[in-house]
Design a protein around this nucleic acid. Structure first.
Lengths: 145, 145
DNA sequence: TCGGTCTCGTCCACGCCGTCCACCTCATCG
DNA sequence: CGATGAGGTGGACGGCGTGGACGAGACCGA
C-alpha cells in the first residue's frame, strides 16, 4: 500500500469503469504495472468488488429506512439464513448496544414498508428511522493522516 | 426500465467492470444497443456511478460505527458544510425520529474514534453504536415484485 | 391503404484497450 | 561480486468501445 496504490484506489472508488490505461496515465506508470497493482489490491482483499451505484428513488424504492432490531433471544434475524435474501433489505450490520442488529431497507411504498415491519416483528422489537435524504452517500477511503 | 434494463442493472451492480460486449452477450443484444441502454440508465439517474468497494479493515480502518446525532438547534452537523469532508465520515443521512442525522464512520483506531466523537460533540449529543460485523454489505436492487 | 417518422435494433470499420511475453533495472545478500 | 527476485518497460496481438449507415416494426394522419 504505497502512495501509488492509494492513488489507484482513490480513482477506482470514484469511477470503477476507468480503463487500466487511463489509470496508468494518471499515476504515471505503464498499463501492465497498473494491472499488476490492481490485481494485488483485489487479491489482498482491499478491493472487494466493483459495483454500479443505483439511485433507490429512481429505481422505484423511495422509502428508505434504518431498522434497529432488538431480537428475542435465539430468534435473532442474524440467525435466520433466509433474512439476507429478502429483497427489501439492503444491508445488515451486527452492532453493539441494546439492539443486536441494524438493517438498512428500501421499499417501493409505505405499504411495502409496513409489510416488511410485520415480517420482522416475529424476530424481535423493530425500531424504525426513516431516511429523509442522504447528504453524503459515500466517501472514498483515503490513507490515514 | 424493461426486463433487459433490469438485467443490465443487475449485472452492473454485481460487477461494474464488465465490458459492454460481455454485457451484450449476457442479455443477447448487440454491443451498441447495450451501450445505448446503459447510457440512458446513467442519464435518467438510475445509475449514479461506478465504484470500487473497499474493505475498511483491510484499508486500515477497523473501527466502524453508526452515530446518531441529536443536534442543538441551529448547530446541526447537517448545516456545517465542512463536516462532509471529514475523512472518517463515510455516510450522512438525515433521518426522522429524535435524532436529526445518522452518520456512518470508520476510523483507524479507538483513539481516532474518540477524537471524532470529541469533534462531533459541539454540534449535539452523539449516540454511538459500534459495528461488530456486516453479514450483508450490499444487496443489488431488483425490480419490485 | 399508404407513406412519413420515430424508436430501437444490427452490422461494420477504425482506433483504443487488456494482456502476455521478453527484457531491463536495481536493491539485497551470501 | 555475481545470483536472485521484485517490479518496471515496451511491443505485439486479439478483443473492445464507438460512431455512422442502415433496416424492421409500431404508430399516425391524409
Amino acid at each position: 500500500m504505497d502512495e501509488t496504490d492509494w492513488a489507484l484506489l482513490a480513482h477506482l472508488q470514484e469511477n470503477s469503469r476507468l480503463s487500466l490505461r487511463e489509470l496508468s496515465r494518471r499515476v504515471h506508470l505503464s498499463a501492465p504495472a497498473v494491472a499488476e497493482r490492481v490485481r494485488r489490491l483485489e487479491e489482498s482483499g482491499v478491493i472487494t468488488g466493483y459495483h454500479a451505484a443505483v439511485d433507490l428513488e429512481a429505481a422505484g424504492r423511495p422509502v428508505v429506512a434504518f431498522i434497529r432490531m432488538s431480537c428475542y433471544g435465539s430468534h435473532c434475524v442474524l440467525r435466520d439464513p433466509d433474512v439476507p435474501s429478502w429483497p427489501e433489505i439492503q444491508e445488515i450490520h451486527r452492532v453493539t448496544g441494546d439492539a443486536c442488529s441494524l438493517l438498512k431497507v428500501a421499499t417501493g411504498s409505505m405499504a411495502g414498508f409496513e409489510r416488511l415491519i410485520d415480517r420482522l416483528a416475529p424476530y424481535g422489537q423493530p425500531s424504525s428511522t426513516l431516511v429523509l435524504s442522504t447528504p453524503l452517500a459515500r466517501r472514498p477511503v483515503i490513507p490515514e493522516p
